[in-house]
Simulated assay, not measured.
Amino acid sequence: MSDKLSKYRSKRDPKRTPEPVPDAPSSSPDGNAFVIQEHHARSLHWDLRLERDGVLVSWAVPKGLPADPGTNHLAVHTEDHPMEYLTFHGEIPQGEYGGGTMTVWDTGTYVTEKWSDREVKFVLHGERASGRFVLFQTRGKNWMIHRMGSAVRDPFPSVSPMLPTERAKPPKDASAYAFEFAWGGRRLLVPIDGGRTDAAREHPWLRGLAESFGSRTAVLDGEVATLGGAEILVFYDLLYDDGRSLVAEPYTVRRAALEALDLTGAHWQTAPSWPGEAGAVRRAAREQGLPGVVAKRLDSPYEPGPSKAWLFIGS
């Protein structure tokens, strides 16, 4: 009988890595456990491992499991892993194979519907991952993973930014609005999916932000502004959060969800907001040399294009 773990052992030195390195596969080959590990290595990915014949047959999935049957994700077939890897989490030293942080994203059982050298069809029963999937080989180590059935999240909103209309004075019913600084920057929508964002093509420093989201999906709205001589992305709205579209929700709901993300970094921050505080915010904007303030109705949904629910008042 061939040693299914020989390739796994050849890539690891038990004196240098905390990963399990057993001498032989498990003696119980009929189990049906699975694990998905979030792996912050050279590039973020998720490792899907299915128990079969005493080992964990493994695929690295750069964008995680697809949530929509209309979109397949790449899955790279890797070496079989030992059963002890079902619960492994920790820090693999940099310089070692797979160096980086690994956490258990989900675990549970699965049902095999088909298993061949080129196609694996299965049903996951986990706490976070569930449903029918099929893995199919495309070329060499490269496979694709497809979700069967219906989508498990809202589609990403395809919208243009909501824009304020100009007004000379603050609204009389100030208590119905939140007041924010007008930053005078360049507007930017940031979609995040699978720990990645297309916005990083223009702003590479956004890769760290996207990776910090892990498997959480989001669409953020903000401006790239120059503050203190540095380029900062200031976020002030959230259109999509963890599989759910927020564009129809009132500003208060979107704002609370945005603040819960606690977005603070070297290149990004969450914009402050002051409900009902028209005069003080306008004075502060003037003192800081900002163009003015934006009044946002607390009950307004996100409306693409010019909207009377957002008002720009010059400082």
Score class of each variant (00 low, 15 high):
residue 256 A to Q: 13
residue 235 F to V: 12
residue 218 A to P: 00
residue 216 R to H: 12
residue 268 W to G: 05
residue 289 G to K: 10
residue 230 A to R: 13
residue 222 G to Q: 04
residue 220 L to V: 03
residue 230 A to I: 00
residue 241 D to M: 01
residue 270 T to M: 11
residue 223 E to V: 00
residue 255 R to S: 13
residue 267 H to N: 14
residue 289 G to Y: 07
residue 216 R to E: 12
residue 244 R to I: 11
residue 239 L to Q: 05
residue 277 E to L: 15
residue 258 L to I: 01
residue 282 R to I: 06
residue 233 L to T: 02
residue 226 T to H: 06
residue 264 T to I: 13
residue 284 A to P: 00
residue 233 L to D: 00
residue 228 G to Y: 06
residue 241 D to C: 10
residue 232 I to W: 04
residue 216 R to C: 12
residue 222 G to F: 05
residue 251 Y to S: 13
residue 240 Y to H: 09
residue 235 F to D: 02
residue 284 A to Q: 11
residue 262 D to M: 10
residue 235 F to G: 01
residue 289 G to S: 10
residue 231 E to S: 13
residue 271 A to P: 02
residue 243 G to E: 01
residue 281 V to Y: 04
residue 250 P to V: 09
residue 284 A to R: 11
residue 278 A to Y: 08
residue 266 A to G: 10
residue 244 R to C: 12
residue 263 L to H: 04
residue 234 V to R: 01
residue 226 T to A: 13
residue 227 L to P: 05
residue 247 V to G: 06
residue 285 A to Q: 03
residue 240 Y to T: 01
residue 251 Y to T: 12
residue 283 R to V: 14
residue 240 Y to K: 03
residue 277 E to W: 12
residue 246 L to R: 03
residue 263 L to Y: 02
residue 284 A to M: 13
residue 280 A to R: 14
residue 289 G to P: 08
residue 247 V to K: 06
residue 230 A to H: 12
residue 287 E to K: 13
residue 230 A to M: 11
residue 244 R to P: 00
residue 257 A to Q: 07
residue 270 T to L: 04
residue 224 V to W: 06
residue 225 A to K: 04
residue 241 D to S: 14
residue 238 L to C: 09
residue 256 A to I: 01
residue 285 A to I: 05
residue 287 E to G: 07
residue 229 G to I: 05
residue 254 R to H: 10
residue 235 F to P: 00
residue 227 L to N: 03
residue 255 R to E: 08
residue 285 A to C: 10
residue 263 L to D: 05
residue 275 P to W: 10
residue 250 P to S: 14
residue 224 V to G: 00
residue 249 E to T: 12
residue 270 T to F: 08
residue 246 L to I: 10
residue 250 P to C: 14
residue 225 A to T: 04
residue 273 S to R: 05
residue 236 Y to E: 00
residue 226 T to M: 12
residue 274 W to G: 10
residue 262 D to L: 10
residue 223 E to H: 09
residue 278 A to T: 01
residue 246 L to N: 05
residue 249 E to P: 09
residue 219 V to S: 02
residue 232 I to N: 07
residue 271 A to Q: 02
residue 256 A to S: 13
residue 274 W to A: 15
residue 234 V to C: 00
residue 287 E to F: 15
residue 242 D to G: 06
residue 220 L to I: 03
residue 259 E to P: 02
residue 259 E to G: 06
residue 249 E to M: 15
residue 231 E to K: 11
residue 288 Q to F: 14
residue 264 T to E: 14
residue 253 V to Y: 09
residue 270 T to I: 12
residue 273 S to H: 08
residue 258 L to E: 05
residue 263 L to Q: 06
residue 238 L to A: 04
residue 235 F to S: 06
residue 253 V to E: 13
residue 239 L to S: 00
residue 223 E to C: 07
residue 262 D to W: 01
residue 276 G to M: 07
residue 274 W to H: 15
